[in-house]
Amino acid sequence: MQEVDEVSDSRRPLPHDFHPPVPEFEVTSEDFSAGGVLPLDQVYDGGNLSPQLRWAGAPAETRSFAVTCFDPDAPTGSGFWHWSVFDIPADVTELPRGAGSGDFKGLPAGAVHVRNDYGTRDFGGAAPPPGDGPHRYVFTVYAVDQERLGPDADTSPAAVGFNLRFHTLARAQVIATYEAPQA
């Protein structure tokens, strides 16, 4: 049997690496810095709150937005979807902290939340296995070319990603890391 070299988590692809290239715009968070560490508020057994996100520079023809959070470093072979929400109206350029958590206060009317890989319809915070090293949490905002993406709340995040592949005008991302120490 041939040995296979372990591939470093930092080389695992991001969810949109397989999509056609599109222009970029900007997304920031008051809760963490790009390349920084997620605070406990965004950790599953911490606050488990979706972070505040603000975006700017989307194309004028944007009809709606979608927001996702993906961990490409999860030891699943396919990553882990922590958050997927779409049909955010085009005039919305910010989600407050906690918009995707609990009672969805702050999530705009008409936005559709699908189940994350925890099986719940909300933001599920970071929870890498203890000692698994740092995981990247990729928060992506998609500028979408239609008001309604098409899927409903029973759709999987992968199927939402399939639809986004064909309807994304531009994309913004911010990445933070989190590591659970060895128990």
Rank of each mutant, 00 (worst) to 15 (best):
D154V: 04
P157D: 13
G150Q: 04
S84D: 00
A159S: 14
D87Y: 06
D152R: 12
T155M: 12
D152N: 15
D73P: 09
G131S: 09
F80E: 13
P96R: 01
F123A: 00
Y137S: 03
H82K: 09
P89G: 02
V112L: 07
F139H: 15
A153D: 11
A158K: 13
A74E: 11
A111P: 06
D152P: 03
G131L: 09
G98Q: 00
D117K: 09
F162M: 02
A74K: 10
E147H: 05
G79V: 13
F123K: 03
Y118N: 09
A74Y: 15
A99K: 04
D152H: 08
P151Q: 08
V144I: 10
V112S: 05
A74F: 15
R115G: 00
E94H: 07
K105E: 15
A90F: 03
P75A: 14
A153C: 09
E147I: 03
A99P: 00
V144Q: 05
D73L: 12
A126W: 06
E147Q: 08
F80Y: 15
G131T: 03
H82A: 10
N163I: 01
A159F: 13
V112W: 07
P151L: 04
F123I: 03
A127F: 13
Q146A: 06
R136G: 12
A158H: 10
V114W: 04
D103L: 05
E94R: 11
R115F: 00
D117N: 15
T93G: 05
S101G: 04
L149P: 00
A127H: 14
G102W: 05
D73Y: 12
P108L: 11
D122N: 07
F86E: 11
S156H: 08
V144W: 05
T140M: 10
G110P: 02
R148K: 12
G125D: 01
P96Y: 07
L149N: 01
S84T: 14
L95I: 02
D132C: 12
P134E: 12
D152Y: 05
G124K: 07
G106A: 01
R136Q: 14
H113M: 15
S78F: 15
D132L: 11
G77H: 11
F139E: 10
G124E: 00
P96H: 06
G161Y: 08
V141D: 02
P108C: 10
S84I: 05
D91A: 09
D117M: 08
A111I: 11
T120Q: 12
P129T: 12
V160F: 05
P89V: 02
R148F: 08
P130M: 13
D145L: 05
P75W: 12
A99W: 01
G77Q: 12
